[in-house]
C-alpha cells in the first residue's frame, strides 16, 4: 500500500474543501477502498475519513424516506421504515456481503462500489478501467462473472452492488454536494455504462460527496422483491439478480419495475421487460415474456453465456415470487 496522509473531518464544508486537493480519496466504511488500496488498485495520497460527518440518519421524508449516506448497510436493512415499506431494498442489502461487511459499508460507499472483475483487481494485468487504453483481457479471457448487458468493446466489468439494483427499482434519487452546491441525481443517471471511458463509473464529479439518498413513496414500493442467484448459498456476489416491483390493481399491472444485477456494467433497468408487464394481468406467461425482454440485446461471451438464460429466469422467478408472496 502506498503511504498516505489521513485526516478525519467533522464538517461537510471542510470535507468538501479537502476533496479539491490532488490525490484525495474519501473514506467511509472502507470495504471497497481499503481492499483496493491493499491491492494497489487505488493509490490515494490523502485519505479523508468522512465517518464523523452527520450524514447517518434514516428518516421519513414526506411520504418517502431519506437515508443518510453514512448509514451502514445494516442500519438501512433493518430500519423499520425500510423493512416494511421497501422490502426489495432490505432484501437486497441482506443478500449482500457478510454481516461484518454490512456493519461497515455505507450507503454512499455501496453506490460507489467498484467492480469485482479479476483483471481490474490485479494491477499487473491490463485493464481499460484502471489504465485507459491498456486493453480489456476479460473480453477473451476468463469472463464467467462478467457482464452481458451494457457492455462495450472496452469493458465488460459487472457492477457488483445489490443495494443499487433495488434503489434503481425504487426510483431513488442520489443527493450530492460539491463546490457548486447541491444536486439531485436520479438513480437511473447515477451509474454510467463504460462505453469508451470505463474509468467513468458514476455521475459523481471530483470533490463531490454523496449526502443522502431519497426513496419516494410509490404505488409499487411495498410490493417489491429481490432475488439473487449465486455460486454458494451466502457471501457471494450475484451471478444474476433481479429487483422487481409491481403496482397491480383490478387484476392488471399498472406499473412495473424490473432491474437486473450481476449481469450488467451498471444496475440495469429493463424497460422492455417492464413494458411486457404493464397493462396485462400478472401471469407466469407475462413474467416469462418479461424475462425474455430483459435480456434482449445481451452480448454473451465464452464463460458467461449462461447468464442470458439465468437472468431471464431470475426476472420471471422474482415476479412469480412477488405475486405469490402478496
Amino acid at each position: 500500500m502506498k503511504p498516505f496522509a489521513y485526516s478525519r473531518e467533522t464538517g461537510l464544508d471542510h470535507a468538501l474543501a479537502r476533496g479539491k486537493e490532488d490525490g484525495v480519496r474519501y473514506l467511509a466504511g472502507g470495504t471497497t477502498l481499503i481492499d483496493l488500496m491493499r491491492l494497489g488498485v487505488e493509490e490515494p495520497s490523502t485519505v479523508v475519513d468522512l465517518r464523523a460527518l452527520p450524514l447517518r440518519d434514516i428518516k421519513a421524508d414526506g411520504d418517502g424516506v431519506q437515508i443518510g449516506a453514512l448509514a451502514t448497510n445494516t442500519e438501512v436493512a433493518y430500519h423499520p421504515l425500510i423493512a416494511k415499506a421497501y422490502p426489495v431494498l432490505s432484501e437486497a442489502l441482506l443478500s449482500g456481503a457478510s454481516p461484518q461487511l454490512r456493519n461497515m459499508a455505507s450507503v454512499g460507499g455501496n453506490l460507489l462500489q467498484r467492480t469485482r472483475c479479476s483483471y481490474f483487481r490485479d494491477p499487473s494485468s491490463p485493464c481499460n478501467k484502471r489504465m485507459a487504453g491498456s486493453g480489456c483481457p476479460a473480453l477473451d479471457g476468463y469472463n464467467r462473472s462478467n457482464a452481458i448487458l451494457g457492455v462495450s468493446s472496452s469493458c465488460i466489468a459487472t457492477h457488483p452492488s445489490d443495494m443499487a439494483v433495488a434503489l434503481l427499482a425504487l426510483d431513488a434519487v442520489v443527493h450530492v454536494r460539491g463546490g457548486g452546491g447541491e444536486r439531485a441525481v436520479p438513480m437511473g443517471d447515477f451509474h454510467v455504462a463504460p462505453g469508451s471511458t470505463p474509468a467513468v463509473e458514476t455521475a459523481l464529479q471530483k470533490g463531490e460527496i454523496i449526502t443522502h439518498v431519497t426513496v419516494p413513496a410509490s404505488p409499487f414500493a411495498q410490493r417489491s422483491h429481490y432475488v439473487k442467484v449465486r455460486d454458494r448459498a451466502s457471501y457471494a456476489f450475484a451471478l444474476s439478480s433481479a429487483a422487481v416491483a409491481l403496482d397491480v390493481s383490478g387484476g392488471v399491472v399498472k406499473s412495473a419495475r424490473v432491474v437486473l444485477g450481476g449481469v450488467a456494467t451498471k444496475p440495469w433497468r429493463a424497460t422492455e421487460a417492464e413494458a411486457e408487464l404493464v397493462g396485462k394481468p400478472p401471469t407466469s406467461m407475462s413474467f416469462d415474456a418479461a424475462g425474455a425482454a430483459a435480456v434482449r440485446g445481451a452480448v454473451p461471451r465464452t464463460h458467461n453465456a449462461f447468464k442470458v438464460e439465468l437472468a431471464k429466469r431470475t426476472v420471471a422467478r422474482a415476479l412469480r415470487d412477488l405475486v405469490g408472496k402478496a
Partner: peptide
Amino acid sequence: TERDPRTSRVVTKDLADYHVPVHAD
C-alpha cells in the same frame, strides 16, 4: 481455480473468486 488460457495466469486468486463452502452451504 481458473487460469486465463492465453497467459496461464491464475484469475481466481482470492476467497471471493475461489469459493469454499460457508456456513449456509
